[in-house]
């Protein structure tokens, strides 16, 4: 049995580690945003650096897994689906890292009154990402549970949309420079896109899990 599963177990661990990194990435993003809004820029920059490391480590792991799946022709029927899932969940992580970097570069000034709403948006987007990772994990071990996690992801994605829309409406109702308003809108949409990308992963999952069912 050990010989049969040696390679498999190694790959399983790699996939699990990769998904751990995606979750960690989301949490680091959330912390980074809190430090940014609180004006604790040093800690924010430290989070940004950490997210960068997480992102490159995740890329490395993902490539390794993909490589091994192809060279040993494992899971031939579901390989396309698995690679699609890994790559699209990587995009979620990349988007989070990219966002944080833009804050570091542009340093947008988010009005004090809108900060709670902005945090609400960030929380919803990252909650969507976390639920998405649970859904991907369930795909490998317990396809029946995928549906629950997908539902949770979609719920959080809608919440993030709603919070994003409210944020933009309030920004444009304020007495600010149009350029400032436009920058606020850009950053709100950026955060929301993390949840949108998580939704894309779940759309793929919904199909993949049907194919996996016996």
């Amino acid at each position: 049995m050990d010989i049969l599963f040696r390679r498999t177990r190694h790959l399983e661990r790699q996939i699990d580690e990769y998904l751990d990194l995606v979750v960690q990435g989301g949490l680091v993003f959330k912390q980074g945003m809190r430090y940014y809004l609180a004006g604790r820029y040093d800690e924010f920059e430290e989070r940004l650096a950490r997210l960068d490391r997480i992102e490159s480590k995740a890329d490395e792991l993902r490539r390794g897994v993909e490589n091994e799946l192809y060279t040993h022709t494992l899971i031939p029927e579901s390989r396309g689906d698995v690679l699609g899932l890994l790559e699209s969940s990587d995009k979620v992580l990349n988007q989070a890292a990219f966002n944080l970097k833009e804050y570091s570069i542009e340093r947008p000034a988010i009005p004090e009154s809108l900060r709670p709403l902005f945090l609400e948006l960030v929380d919803a987007a990252i909650a969507a990402q976390e639920a998405m990772v649970l859904a991907v994990r369930a795909y490998f071990r317990n396809p029946a549970a995928v549906r629950d996690h997908v539902t949770k992801t979609l719920f959080n994605e809608t919440e993030s949309d709603r919070a994003g829309e409210r944020f933009r409406r309030e920004v444009f109702a304020m007495d600010l420079e149009l350029s400032h308003k436009a920058q606020m809108r850009h950053f709100a949409l950026r955060v929301d896109s993390v949840a949108d990308l998580a939704e894309d992963v779940c759309d793929r999952l919904a199909i993949a899990v049907i194919k996996r069912s016996l």
Partner: peptide, 25 residues
């Protein structure tokens, strides 16, 4: 064969990759 196999697989929650290796063998 199919009905018990399906019930068993739902219960055992075998990882996709392990299932693949077992099926192959």
């Amino acid at each position: 064969l199919f009905l018990p196999a399906r019930a068993l697989l739902e219960r055992l929650r075998i990882h996709l990759l392990e299932l693949d290796a077992t099926t192959r063998a």
